[in-house]
Design a protein around this nucleic acid. Structure first.
Lengths: 136, 136
DNA sequence: CATTACTGTAATTTTTTTAATTACAGTATA
DNA sequence: TATACTGTAATTAAAAAAATTACAGTAATG
């Protein structure tokens, strides 16, 4: 569910940008979000795989930005949160293949859905994480 | 759920554009989509309220475009499907009000989420329903 | 070197959301 | 007056998401 992941990811990244010297742990972050720490850790795993953060295990461990907040654009965070999904996904039910529209709708829709994601990325490219954080 | 509604609405509108002389009924449309007719009728109610289609009750009734397909842009359909929601909605859990980020994140996010919807609308403005239909 | 405090995941359960179904009143057609 | 629709509300079933539990692995610290 992109909509949740995106909100979680932005929140996490804002915290990390604000306390960029500290290793922040998932419980603290989860308390700020008011969600379960495991969800936070999962999203951190994605941000880590995307190269935006680093983490340290063990006592006094936690997470930290790997890149300066002014080098990170909100679109970078969006792309990681979204993964391979599209924001507006097609219906799960297979449309009727005996219908002229049903037969082709999914492939035609796919183009639109990809274009929408590209448009979102372009929009989010405009703002850096630092700019976003400086509002707080 | 905007993602479902948008797909349903586009599918319905494509069918109506293709068979623009006919009153199409919800069972036929539902069979093309392979979903329940009640869901179709609900989305038709929204399209009707949005002024894009007209419907006729009783025997031989159904739904029909009210506006020519070349005057309808995909953004018009998107706006109706989305209603007052944003595509990427904020988390339901209230973030921690004792946290500097938690306290303000929702209001700051709202701006981003609105901007995303505007960007999607702009993208979908580029294509008319007729152009989309002509692909089939 | 044992204790503590973390990450990282997997597995399971609970909760929430979405979709399907059922039901039926109202209406136009023939 | 029978038939075939729309329009909606209420209920049930199914699917998805979130929370919880559990625990192995790891690093710091006394």
């Amino acid at each position: 569910m992109i909509k949740t992941k995106f909100s979680i990811a932005i929140h996490i990244m804002t915290l990390l940008a604000m306390y960029k010297e500290d290793w922040m742990n998932s419980i603290l972050i989860a308390e700020s979000l008011n969600i379960n720490p495991v969800l936070v850790r999962k999203e951190i795993a994605a941000l880590k795989a995307g190269g935006l953060v680093e983490s340290k295990e063990g006592k006094n461990g936690g997470v930290k930005l790997l890149i300066d907040a002014n080098k990170i654009r909100l679109s970078d965070i969006f792309k990681i949160a979204k993964g391979t999904d599209t924001v507006l996904s097609p219906l799960k039910n297979k449309p009727n293949p005996n219908c002229r529209v049903g037969k082709q709708i999914n492939s035609k829709m796919d183009t639109i859905l990809e274009d929408i994601d590209t448009a979102i990325s372009k929009e989010l490219e405009k703002q850096t994480l630092e700019e976003f954080m400086n509002q707080f």
